[in-house]
């Protein structure tokens, strides 16, 4: 993939993450903050399909944006083909792992009974 395309994705995911996180925070402040973090409340949120989708998109957007940011920083540290390949592979695997683990959590909790 061209660097320009990757950076386009980077900027778009950054902006989209900002938007989704803002919605997520707004939804937290609908009820008093301490109440919103109660166990039943949190599980109930996960069981709301729209909220689960919002969490999933936050997870995906932040993972893509964050791990690409990490890739960019690491690329600037050293310059060699070996290092570049390692960094790209490492950040890609780490990103997939984080998304997979987060998705698993969302799926498990959304299927859990109160």
């Amino acid at each position: 993939m061209k660097e320009g395309t990757i950076m386009k994705i980077h900027y778009i995911t950054g902006l989209a993450a900002l938007l989704t996180v803002a919605i997520h925070i707004m939804m937290r402040v609908v009820v008093p903050f301490s109440v919103s973090l109660e166990y039943e409340n949190v599980v109930a949120n996960y069981q709301n399909i729209l909220y689960a989708l919002l969490l999933e998109s936050v997870l995906i957007l932040i993972s893509i944006h964050g791990f690409n940011g990490l890739r960019v920083m690491l690329l600037e540290l050293r310059q060699s083909d070996k290092w570049e390949k390692f960094v790209t592979l490492f950040t890609l695997i780490a990103m997939i792992a984080v998304i997979a683990y987060g998705t698993r959590t969302i799926i498990i909790v959304s299927g859990q009974s109160l």
């Binding site: 660097e3 320009g4 960019v72 690329l75 600037e76 570049e84």
Partner: peptide, 9 residues
């Protein structure tokens, strides 16, 4: 200029 160490850095 559109490469890993190009303009985006």
């Amino acid at each position: 200029v559109d490469h890993k160490h190009g303009i985006w850095r």
